[in-house]
Amino acid sequence: MNQKEILFDYILHLADNSMIIGQRNAEWCGHGPVLEQDIALTNISLDLIGEARSLYQYAAEIKGGGATEDSLPFLRDVLQYRNLLLVEQPNTDWAYTIVRQFFFDVYHYYLNKMLIEHSNDTRLKEIASKTIKEATYHLKWSSEWMIRLGDGTDISKSKMQTAVEELWDFTGELFLESATEQAAAQAGFGISPSSIESYWREKVAEILEEATLTIPEKGFAQKGGKTGIHSEHLGYILAEMQFMQRAYPNLEW
């Protein structure tokens, strides 16, 4: 890959993460456990999809050839998607959704912080500067819910512990460096994910402790999302998300 292709692939990875978790959260809209939290989760979804749009717009400019903020999310298949396995996991229930969001928020927050501090790409830094404000709020919101439900009732604690354990398998991938990430870090516009691992582990440990939840053993890390080898869930997410563009191609909506 040349530099341009690496940058493109790296931006897609960032964009796909926010797109897919944003799409997952949007499934909750109208079905939340209480009206105020329905609104809060929709806000987060709106922020994340908004961030994905900015990133896709940038990626489309780099790619050229008529690529747009829509052609990238709506016309790529599973193997071309670069998101983490974590974000495509099903909503399951409020506990899973909160834990998935929390694990992602910690990662998302530190990643954007590092991009602001270290990236040599002005555009990526600009997008990260906007994102960090939102990510700070997301992290506060999901941390509070981790604590509230972990330290709530016996039932909520047990649901949260189960979700933490099941989703833990997908957290190892966050820090496994893909070839693109390695090249992006070397070129100076990207961040090596291993550089945020200690921050992530420290923050997660702090919140889980306050939530009276147990941190799982390090265990086996499921991986593949960053290079297009996804879980079976992503195909269904895309089938739904891309339905209109696939059924009625090349139209204005």
């Binding site: 809209c29 929709t42 999809i49 994905a52 749009r53 829509d70 709506f74 998300m241 139209l251 909506w253």
Partner: peptide, 14 residues
């Protein structure tokens, strides 16, 4: 919401 035809429409509908 999950099937909106493009991102602008998706965000507006959400």
């Amino acid at each position: 919401i999950t099937r909106a035809p493009n991102l602008r429409r998706k965000v507006a509908l959400l």
